[in-house]
Amino acid sequence: MSNQPLSTVRIGGIKATIWENEDDKGIARYNTTITRTYLDQNKEWQENNSFSLDDLPRLRLATEQAFTQIHERIAERHHDKSNNQEEPDASEDPAPAATKQGRGKKSFTEKVDAERAKASGAAK
């Protein structure tokens, strides 16, 4: 991974910068830095991590978009990893793929939907 951000979301003066790093096991980890940009009295751009009441709707939109982009990246990496693996030998595990998926684990989409439902329920 590089020192360059994976992506930057801008909503008005709010900026969410997404960073992707791999841990020592090769697992991708994601962080997001959130800042507010503004022009100071000398007409120079500054960044701050303090947000006013008027910033909060834009902050929410920026974090939702960052959340979506991160989860799309995770799905993309998972898909790339799955495509790069060799097909398993059918004799190794006789259980059909549908049975393997039905072992009580949630799909990626189900996990994201559950997180969004939980977040929207907490906001009410």
Rank of each mutant, 00 (worst) to 15 (best):
W19I: 08
W19N: 01
W19H: 00
W19T: 07
E20C: 03
E20W: 10
N21M: 12
N21I: 04
N21S: 11
E22I: 07
E22S: 13
E22L: 14
E22T: 11
D23M: 09
D23I: 02
D23P: 04
D23N: 03
D23S: 01
D24S: 06
D24N: 07
D24V: 10
D24Y: 09
K25F: 14
K25V: 13
G26C: 07
G26M: 01
I27L: 12
I27R: 14
A28K: 11
R29H: 10
R29S: 11
Y30K: 07
Y30Q: 05
Y30I: 08
T32G: 01
T32S: 03
T33W: 00
T33G: 05
T33E: 01
T33K: 00
I34Q: 06
T35Q: 00
T35L: 03
R36V: 03
R36Q: 02
R36A: 03
R36W: 04
T37N: 09
Y38A: 06
Y38F: 10
Y38N: 08
L39H: 02
D40F: 05
D40V: 00
Q41V: 14
Q41Y: 15
N42A: 05
N42S: 07
N42E: 06
N42H: 04
K43Q: 14
K43L: 14
K43V: 11
K43A: 14
K43E: 14
K43R: 13
K43Y: 14
K43T: 05
K43C: 12
E44D: 07
E44Y: 11
E44Q: 04
E44W: 10
W45E: 11
Q46M: 03
Q46N: 06
Q46E: 02
E47M: 07
E47T: 01
E47A: 05
N48R: 01
N48L: 06
N48F: 06
N48S: 11
N49C: 09
N49L: 03
N49S: 01
N49V: 00
S50N: 10
S50P: 14
S50T: 13
S50L: 07
S52F: 08
S52A: 04
L53E: 15
L53N: 15
L53Q: 15
L53D: 15
D54S: 11
D54L: 10
D55F: 02
D55G: 08
L56R: 04
L56P: 09
L56E: 08
P57E: 01
R58K: 15
R58W: 15
R58V: 14
L59W: 12
R60Q: 12
R60C: 12
R60M: 14
R60V: 12
R60W: 11
A62H: 07
A62L: 00
A62C: 04
T63M: 08
T63S: 09
E64P: 06
E64C: 11
Q65T: 09
Q65N: 13
Q65V: 13
A66Q: 05
A66M: 13
A66D: 01
A66Y: 11
A66K: 03
A66T: 03
F67K: 00
F67Q: 02
F67T: 00
F67N: 00
T68D: 07
Q69W: 09
Q69H: 08
Q69M: 09
Q69I: 09
Q69G: 10
